[in-house]
Design a protein around this nucleic acid. Structure first.
Length: 436
RNA sequence: GACCCCGUCGUCUAGCCUGGUCUAGGACAAGAGCCUUUCGAGCUCUCGACACGGGUUCGAAUCCCGUCGGGGUCACCA
């Protein structure tokens, strides 16, 4: 029998990073087993559910590359179905009416949850207050989460329920529903939660939490997928950079850890950098443009130029969004000097004439290529008989405003003659003005 | 509080099931150095953990018990 799993978000917000990982583990399991990955929308709470959220969640899943084979199936379109099952239970006296709601008579016995990750977990329904007769239909006629969930999982022939740890206590309740309805019970796999730096639930306070936020910050989807897969699971030889295809090959649900993992954005950044380095610059151009657009940032730089910029910068950008900071001078009219850098490297008044002369010579270049630029600058350095770095570093600050950048000559080439010369002359004037 | 889950470097983890090869391996971060064209990039090195206490055993990170710690659930929300 082929594997059938589902991801069942409720459309009450955007796709949370923790939910995304649940979706990912379901997807990886389905793809590894050559099974079916189904999407189901748990919108039984008519008040909190919104269509816009559903759309955002679907977009995020697509963006991550988690494609589904069936669905999305909306629970709100199946209210009569759940009601039929509730009536059936009522009729069999397995459930009863209580102030307008329908409650299931919970069996007073021990329930054993068989879990692929945790093994067997025993709950004593007789001894626990939390297992009192369960509401399956609310007084407004809509089904509760546990009821709709069980009915759908059974009807959709779900073979493995892979969901967050926080559902462990729901499982014995759901088992009671399976039993009452005579449904076959699927296998369960409860994956550990993702915690914030403070060991509590990952929340807004600690930074980005939704997939859309990560996208707008300029993370690559495959980097997020890679990082999320490594949280609670690890491939052979403890490899770190594992693209989605290989993740699918190696994934094993029983090898998922039992303990909660803390979300660490440093590692995400590092993985993202690894993918950025390898990423096709043309693809990055598109992604960068959409980030700029969202920032309300416009630039006249054309695609070809932006591609050249990204080719150079992508090896040291943690996120695409960072191009806006590291490469700021490329997109604005005026350079903004980093205070410490200017103080340290633009302090020498002789630099003013150096910059003027270098600018003059660069301006004469017919083709503004890295090699030609290097020739000019190194030539000037040789003439003056001064250490190379005493010119190279100040030029970097003059042109970019800061001390972090790709190699200077390639950088100037991509910056363009006009801007390079302009920034050098501006710096020369600035240095002179500082002397007064 | 009750019930359930979990506990290896600061963080993610390998090892645990099938005790010895573990003076516990890798990665991120941090620190140091190198790259004399910088750097948040690259290379090299360093720091750093089996929560604690009892057992069992010739031998325990690995098995058992307890303690402590963290998390989850206890809704007509999902």
């Amino acid at each position: 029998m082929s594997v059938r799993v589902r991801f069942a978000p409720s459309p009450t917000g955007s796709l949370h990073i923790g939910s995304a990982r649940t979706a990912l583990f379901n997807w990886l399991f389905a793809r590894h087993e050559k099974g079916v990955f189904i999407l189901r929308v748990e919108d039984t709470d008519v008040v909190r559910s919104e269509e816009s959220h559903m759309k955002t969640i679907l977009d995020s899943l697509e963006w991550l590359g988690l494609d589904w084979d069936e669905g999305p199936l909306l629970q709100s379109s199946r209210f009569e179905l759940y009601d039929d099952f509730a009536k059936k239970l009522l009729h069999q006296d397995k459930a009863y009416l209580d102030e307008g709601a329908v409650r299931l008579r919970m069996p007073k016995k021990k329930m054993v949850v068989k879990d692929l990750i945790h093994g067997e977990m025993v709950f004593d329904l007789a001894a626990e207050a939390q297992f009192e007769d369960l509401v399956i239909t609310k007084s407004n006629g809509t089904p509760t989460y546990n009821f709709a969930c069980v009915v759908d999982d059974a009807l959709m022939k779900i073979t493995h329920v892979i969901r967050g740890d926080d559902h462990i206590s729901n499982t014995p309740k759901q088992l009671a529903i399976y039993e009452a309805l005579n449904f076959p019970v699927p296998l369960f796999a409860h994956i550990p939660l993702i915690l914030g730096e403070d060991r509590s639930r990952l929340s807004k306070r600690t930074g980005a939490t939704s997939i859309t936020e990560f996208r707008d910050l300029g993370y690559l989807p495959e980097a997020i997928v890679n990082y999320l897969a490594l949280l609670g699971w690890s491939p052979k030889n403890n490899r770190e950079v594992v693209p989605p295809k290989e993740l699918i090959e190696e994934f094993s649900i029983v090898k998922v850890n039992k303990n909660a993992a803390i979300f660490n954005s440093d590692k995400l950044d590092w993985i993202n950098l690894q993918y950025m380095k390898e990423a096709d610059a043309k693809r990055l151009v598109k992604l960068t443009r959409s980030i700029f657009e969202k920032e309300g940032f416009s630039t006249r730089i054309d695609d070809q130029h932006l591609e050249a910029i990204l080719t150079l910068f992508k090896t040291r950008l943690k996120t695409l969004r960072e191009l806006l900071e590291m490469g700021r001078f490329l997109f604005t009219e005026e350079v903004r000097y980093d205070e410490a850098a200017a103080k340290e490297l633009l302090g020498n008044p002789k630099l003013a004439s150096d910059f003027q002369e270098i600018a003059r010579r660069l301006d004469e270049l017919s083709s503004f290529e890295a090699k030609r630029i290097e020739g000019v600058i190194r030539g000037y350095i040789a003439e003056r008989n001064i250490p190379a770095k005493e010119i190279i570093h100040p030029v970097r600050v003059a042109v970019t405003g800061g001390t972090v950048s790709p190699g200077l000559f390639e950088l100037l080439a991509v910056t363009g003659k006009e801007k390079t010369v302009k920034n050098l002359r501006f710096a020369a004037d600035w240095i002179t003005s500082q002397q007064k």
